[in-house]
Amino acid sequence: MLKRAKVIILHRMPYSDSSLIVKGFCSDFGVQSFLVKSAKSKNCPFKSSLDPLAESEIVFHDSGKSDLHFIREASLIDWFPHLRKDLEKNAMAEVIAEILLRYLSAGPSQELVFRYTEKALQILDRGEKPQETLVRWMWHVADCEGYALSLHECVRCGAEIQNFPADFLFENGGALCQNCLGVLQPEHSPEFLADIARLSTREQLHNPRFLECEFFKYLKNHLGENREVKSYHWLQEVRNYAFCKTDS
Rank of each mutant, 00 (worst) to 15 (best):
D78K: 08
Y147H: 09
N90H: 10
S105T: 11
P165L: 10
A148C: 11
L83S: 02
L134F: 01
D167R: 01
L101D: 14
N172K: 11
D78Q: 09
I161M: 02
L151S: 04
P130Y: 02
L176P: 00
E171R: 06
W137E: 05
I123W: 05
I99W: 05
R102M: 15
V141Q: 03
A142S: 09
C144W: 01
C144N: 04
A91S: 06
I99S: 10
K129P: 00
D167M: 02
E132T: 03
N172A: 14
Q122C: 08
R156S: 10
L181P: 02
F46H: 08
M138W: 00
L68G: 11
L176Y: 02
R84D: 00
M92D: 10
W137D: 04
L124K: 02
L53M: 14
Q162E: 01
K119C: 10
I96L: 12
T133H: 02
M92H: 05
Q162M: 02
P165F: 14
H61R: 06
G64C: 00
A97I: 09
Q178V: 15
F60L: 07
Q131C: 02
S56M: 13
D51F: 07
L100W: 04
V183R: 08
W79N: 11
P165K: 09
I123H: 11
L134Q: 04
D86H: 05
D86N: 05
W137C: 03
V141H: 06
I99T: 07
K129E: 06
Q178K: 14
R126E: 15
D143S: 06
P108I: 13
E128G: 01
E111R: 13
S63C: 02
K89V: 04
L124D: 03
A106D: 11
C177H: 11
I161S: 14
P81G: 08
S75V: 06
G127K: 07
L181F: 06
E111D: 15
L112V: 11
K47L: 14
A120W: 10
Q178G: 15
D62P: 00
F80A: 02
N90D: 05
W139Q: 09
R126L: 13
R126N: 10
F46R: 06
F170G: 08
Y103D: 13
V113Q: 08
W137T: 12
L104K: 01
F60Y: 15
L50R: 13
S48D: 10
W137L: 09
V183G: 03
N90E: 12
H61F: 10
C154G: 09
W79V: 06
A93N: 07
P130W: 08
L149D: 07
P186Q: 05
D86C: 01
S49M: 06
A97R: 08
F164D: 04
Q110T: 09
T117Y: 12
S109K: 12
R115N: 05
L134I: 01
I71W: 09
E111F: 14
F114M: 10
L53P: 00
Q122V: 13
P81F: 10
L176A: 14
I99P: 00
K129A: 07
E132V: 10
L124R: 09
A166F: 06
H82N: 11
Q131G: 05
Q178M: 12
A97C: 03
G173K: 09
Y116G: 12
F70W: 02
K119L: 15
G158L: 03
P108C: 13
P130L: 08
I71H: 07
P45C: 14
D67K: 01
I123E: 15
L151T: 03
A74Q: 03
R156E: 15
F114D: 07
P108A: 15
